[in-house]
């Protein structure tokens, strides 16, 4: 139990440090990697809905603390994303393959970012009377989302390969009679 708790504490610390102390130092597109979403998706597929939800309720408020966005917007977006991810996964996917993992990554990144950008835009609108949200052209939004999804697709693939080679999480099970 203690070991498990320690394991999750280290995981949370790892995510927070990557998000707040390492990624901001990187330039351009690397900053677009949603590390906590990638890891939450991995946790969802390997440990299940409950663990992913619980983890999002811990990581979310911590991330909220460090961002100047209406508290707890990040937590809210994470919870909604996981719920959405679970709805889609349980209806459309039959196994935990690379394809389902990547699909879940892309779906979660899309849902989360649309939600968080929407909340941020609304917040800016209310606090600054700044309606920038409506000034984005479809091509700008499309370009941004395409880059975002591509970057997270690459990062998700690396995470999947790491998980595949260093654990049994995605190893296929062969049933023998």
């Amino acid at each position: 139990m203690i070991f498990k708790g320690l394991k999750y504490f280290l995981l949370i610390l790892f995510i927070v440090l990557i998000e707040l102390s390492i990624l901001p130092q990187t330039g351009g597109w690397v900053k677009m990697i949603n590390v906590f979403l990638l890891i939450l998706t991995l946790i969802y597929l390997t440990k299940g809905f409950n663990t992913a939800l619980a983890l999002s309720l811990i990581i979310g408020p911590i991330m909220d603390l460090y961002h100047l966005i209406l508290m707890p917007s990040i937590t809210f977006c994470l919870v909604v994303t996981i719920f959405f991810m679970d709805s889609i996964f349980s209806r459309l996917f039959t196994n935990k393959s690379y394809y389902s993992f990547i699909s879940m990554i892309l779906l979660s990144v899309l849902v989360y970012n649309v939600l968080i950008k929407g909340i941020y835009g609304l917040q800016t609108m209310v606090t600054n009377s700044d309606f920038y949200l409506f000034s984005w052209s479809p091509s700008m939004i499309g370009g941004y989302l395409a880059t975002l999804l591509f970057v997270n697709f690459i990062a998700g693939t690396i995470l999947f390969l790491s998980s595949y080679f260093f654990s049994n999480n995605f190893k296929s099970v062969i049933l023998r009679d």
């Binding site: 508290m71 809210f76 919870v79 709805s87 209806r91």
Partner: peptide, 27 residues
Amino acid sequence: MAVTPRKAKLSIAALLIVVLVFVFHYL
């Protein structure tokens, strides 16, 4: 497979926690 009642309850509980965090943070 549809969303089970248990999952629905958990999700509602999670959203309730979000609301509580919001209230308690600003208090």
